[in-house]
Design a protein around this nucleic acid. Sequence first.
DNA 1: GTAAAAACTTGATCTATATCAAGACACCAA
DNA 2: TTGGTGTCTTGATATAGATCAAGTTTTTAC
Lengths: 193, 193
Amino acid sequence: MEEVYTGLRKSIEQYISLNEEEWQQIRTCWKPFHYHKNTVITSVGQVEKYFYYVHEGLIRGFFEKNGTEHNMGFTYNGEYSGVYDSFIFQRPSDWSLETLADSSGVRISYHQLEMLYSKVPILKEWTFRFNRQVMFGLGIFIRSLLADSAEEKFERLMSQSPHIIQIVPQKHLASYLGMTPETFSRMRKKWAQ
Amino acid sequence: MEEVYTGLRKSIEQYISLNEEEWQQIRTCWKPFHYHKNTVITSVGQVEKYFYYVHEGLIRGFFEKNGTEHNMGFTYNGEYSGVYDSFIFQRPSDWSLETLADSSGVRISYHQLEMLYSKVPILKEWTFRFNRQVMFGLGIFIRSLLADSAEEKFERLMSQSPHIIQIVPQKHLASYLGMTPETFSRMRKKWAQ
DNA sequence: GTAAAAACTTGATCTATATCAAGACACCAA
DNA sequence: TTGGTGTCTTGATATAGATCAAGTTTTTAC
């Protein structure tokens, strides 16, 4: 358990630095969670209550349209998860969160976080910077979706995160790149040669 | 000129409220700009110096790949523009900004804005909320790119912003939706019936 | 350990959209 | 006002990737 909090602290301190008192305030607000594989954490229509720090596990964010699921992203060890927009605006979500492996870590509720901002003002700066980073990532994703062919998207994924294919089921990766599992499988074969 | 600043103030006050002194501090930091039609404001490789409030005009954000330009978005009257990621991180831009009509308004430099944050702390909250709104919009855009067919994207655009077709050249709208001008033209014909 | 269910692969075919090409229209510059 | 350049339309053809289908491998559950 201790190492989960150590991970959280390190992760927060990538953006801001904390003194001991601030950290203690923050720490007490994040509560442990644990979900088994293939558990839906948040589903469409719900209001996202929590923001998650995933110490160990794998989570996917996805939505459904005409019977097809579309993956928007994945969370690995040491990253954050949650239905951001629903969390931020406390409005019903239009996408879902599901574990793809047993996942555990700590999470903070919306109200706890709002309260923390007043107790630990610097934390607002953390959210600020974190959001900017997310924005930046979304921009890159959009760029790829607009301009890259299926083959390019596949190759980009393989050269940037080759390990990912061992962790995330192919059908989900395919959907994330906006292609069918069949196409993904063919790309993979081609790539291997 | 006065109405430009009135527009800016209203726009900022959608997120936060300002007293007179705060507003005066903010106001003096935003300087007028004016660009003619078809002017490149910021190009690839440059570091974005300014954040723009466009009172009147039309600006597109785009990048180029293999000789094809891809539009990422447009700015209309009363909206903000700038190469956000380059501005935020003060790193060379990998996309460009160009006017599609004579465009004028006010803009603030990176350093002025940083300075303003310390003089008018509430302004940071404005940026915070504005960024969240941008994130939200990017999420919707990604969703559409992942799941919608060319026809659906076209229809969505026409029902959500039917006026846009009068303002933005079709070839740019086509690129924004991730399709060719020919496809866009055919969709349009079909739609008219 | 074994059966059932998922996930992945591979091939054959189909289709939405791209590409190529050529004509019509529109706007701007002298 | 007119020529020219860029934009839009329309048709013919090409193709990347989807869909359908059937077999194989891997994972899950009892």
